[in-house]
Write a protein that binds this DNA or RNA. Structure first.
Lengths: 339, 339
DNA sequence: CTGAAAGCGCTTACAG
DNA sequence: CTGAAAGCGCTTACAG
């Protein structure tokens, strides 16, 4: 077990001071050509690598960013991480990527663990619902950006879409095709601004439209395919008049589609179905799913640029609103004229 | 901009030495009850958080692990990260997660960046094809485990499946259903042990079976849906006798399925199709896809335990072979008896 | 059980 | 352009 080499050892071999070694390595122009060569050779010969902890301690900079996502199973957030890293890597940043679940009210411990390990900035999906974390960020002035949703928040800037407008866009499509009895199947709204905004928008718009109260089925726990399917059965039992179902996630939508197939409900002839967040296979399903495509890779890229701008150049972080694209596919058709 | 508090400041407020603060925080039993309380209160009052760089420098431990995956778009690897983190978080480890592409021959710079930022161990998908990285790991004795594939490697332990056996399993299914003219559509094998092993296994087995040379179409660059579709067209043009297509990734399989649908090729009546790596939607496609399910979450969990065992208890890392499960679904049927 | 002191390895004013 | 020296904040033998 050979201990890693240090600047001092390199300095000795190159016959210079430790300071010069540091300079030659980090700021080559500041060292005369010949010396620089000697140092570089010595470092090479010894297989020197800088000790990041020592450098971070001295510089008070770690060049490490914390990325917190609800899940990575979801292409949506994977693409966002991809966008973030595509920028970060080129700028000499590494990133902790932490999966933290969908409930942002209890994320303090998890996120703090990343700061305790040196992260100096944070990109987190969605609104932070945990007071302790907000306080921590504020006190330590940690550069932070909330991604995916554009949120109105006095303190934390955000880069993403307006879930309310997005929901309206999707709903408008259904309304324009003559649907009136529309149900929403949503995931649990606890600590999840996306679900909250979508449900709220749906309720607001529908309360002026249908014959009944807006029909919303909120799945209690975190939702998978099966939960979507079960919620669909319940909704249909209670509201047989429904001709269109809006699902607030694609997992839910897939659950509904599979149940429809199983029960012989024809989509879109008998029932129109929409999802949320496009994914590679949306167009391959049968019927192919109508969804809203959120540009998460782009959001990630912009968030990374904003954080780096702040860290490296003291540039303030600007909130940005992006616009999702409506992907109209065969799972939506005109409402049946008579039931 | 208030500078973070230090042990010295906590010590002052609690009227003890810095050493005692450190002990009270890290090793509470070693400090008498009353003192401990005083320190904890003082730390609380000042909002003290330990400086991770300083601790890491002194302890020569960072409790940070590097996880390197080809992609996260792929549920396969997302699930693996999930498995890794499910163990790591509980043990006080954070993880860099780095997306590095599928070619493991040029990963040195990327991975080194993680070590340069404090990672002290590595979990990497697949065989490391980069000599410089192998040398770096060896010289610095960095605990490493290759995940996904069980590889024969003198130096780096691995946890995963045997891709050769896995391919044989899938191929046996097709052979047992009477298929003789089977084509494989593979992704580029460059720096990718999975693709290499699958192609090799296919060639070996098929060279004893069909009337012709084994039919393998290797997609040159990294493969998406479209590449799978294009490769399928080419294969079918050159080999109209083919009754079954083995795809070495699910993206390729989906590309093939979509092309079949477009061209009116009935699956599985006219053509059987298999994928690799099961994913949530495999059973929802029409036809639902026959694949092999690799337990990547479990692999991740085992890898995390192995690395922690090594780091915290000097326990050597054991290689492990896991067995993938064959998911037989409707995309495979008996070979047509006459063409 | 507690404290004084050394030192982890690096970078950066400060001199020259 | 280069070096000697200080110090980042923590932990841990070493004494007592």
């Amino acid at each position: 077990m050979t201990r890693p080499k240090t600047v001092v050892e390199v300095a000795k071999l190159a016959n210079v001071s430790a300071a010069t070694v540091s300079r030659a390595l980090n700021n080559p122009e500041s060292v005369r050509g010949e010396l620089r060569q000697r140092v570089l050779h010595a470092a090479q010969a010894l297989g020197y690598t800088s000790n990041p902890a020592a450098a971070a301690l001295r510089k008070r900079r770690s060049r490490v960013i914390a990325i917190v996502v609800p899940s990575l199973e979801d292409e949506t957030f994977s693409r966002m991480v991809n966008g973030l890293q595509s920028v970060l890597v080129g700028q000499g940043y590494a990133s902790f990527v932490q999966i933290a679940g969908f409930d942002n009210t209890q994320v303090f411990e998890t996120v703090k663990g990343l700061f305790d390990r040196g992260a100096e900035a944070l990109a987190i999906v969605g609104r932070i619902g945990d007071r302790r974390l907000i306080e921590h960020l504020r006190l330590r002035m940690i550069p932070t950006v909330a991604v995916y949703s554009r949120l109105d928040d006095g303190f934390i800037p955000s880069i993403g879409i307006d879930n309310k407008k997005a929901t309206a866009k999707l709903l408008d499509l259904l309304l324009s095709r003559g649907h009136k009895n529309i149900a929403m199947i949503a995931g649990t709204t606890r600590g999840n601004d996306r679900q909250q905004a979508r449900v709220k928008a749906f309720r607001e718009i529908m309360s002026g439209v249908g014959d009944t109260e807006p029909i919303v089925h909120e799945i209690e726990r975190h939702y998978g395919l099966d939960d979507g399917a079960a919620a669909f059965c319940a909704t249909r039992r209670e509201h047989p008049e429904v001709t269109a179902v809006m699902c607030t996630s694609h997992m839910i939508a897939l659950g509904v589609l599979s149940k429809c197939r199983e029960q012989g409900v024809r989509v879109p002839e008998d029932l129109s179905v929409t999802g949320f967040d496009d994914f590679s296979f949306s167009g391959l399903l049968k019927p192919s799913l109508t969804t809203l495509s959120v540009p998460t890779r782009e959001i990630g890229r912009l968030a990374a640029e904003a954080l780096i701008g702040k860290l490296d150049h003291e540039r303030p972080i600007q909130s940005l609103e992006l616009v999702p694209e409506l992907m109209i596919r065969d799972s939506v058709s005109r409402a049946p004229s008579k039931r």
